[in-house]
């Protein structure tokens, strides 16, 4: 059963990777990366159950945390071309 879930998740990840490669816009790619991250979290959790190694859940949790911050960081970088406190930069004064 877990093998079937792992295979299904693996195929989904491959399909999302195709979308990541095909694009065509930046936002398609960011969406694909975000989707890929969520699938990876589920894949790691299923793999933990499949191998009988529940420690994998800690890695899955960590990956979920990083995935969210990473998506937001990518979007922020492409909007402001910076990752710091953008309201204090001269170019963006007054922007939220």
């Amino acid at each position: 059963m877990f093998l079937a879930a792992a295979i299904a998740l693996f195929i989904s990840m491959a399909l999302v990777l195709v979308r990541l490669y095909a694009g065509p816009t930046l936002y398609d790619r960011v969406l694909a990366v975000n989707s890929f991250g969520t699938l990876t979290v589920l894949f790691i959790a299923v793999l933990g159950f499949l191998n009988g190694r529940p420690d994998f859940l800690d890695i899955a949790l960590l990956y979920a945390l990083i995935n969210f911050v990473g998506t937001i960081a990518i979007l922020k970088f492409f909007r402001y071309r910076a990752l710091g406190d953008v309201s204090q930069m001269p170019d963006n004064a007054g922007r939220k």
Binding site: A4, L15, T25, D28, L31, S35, L39
Partner: peptide, 22 residues
């Protein structure tokens, strides 16, 4: 739950690939 969940992730991935625009 697990089998239908994998089916839904697969459907979502197929949709991401098939749908025409962002």
């Amino acid at each position: 739950f697990i089998l239908s969940g994998s089916a839904f992730t697969l459907i979502g991935a197929i949709g991401t690939l098939r749908f025409p625009n962002f």
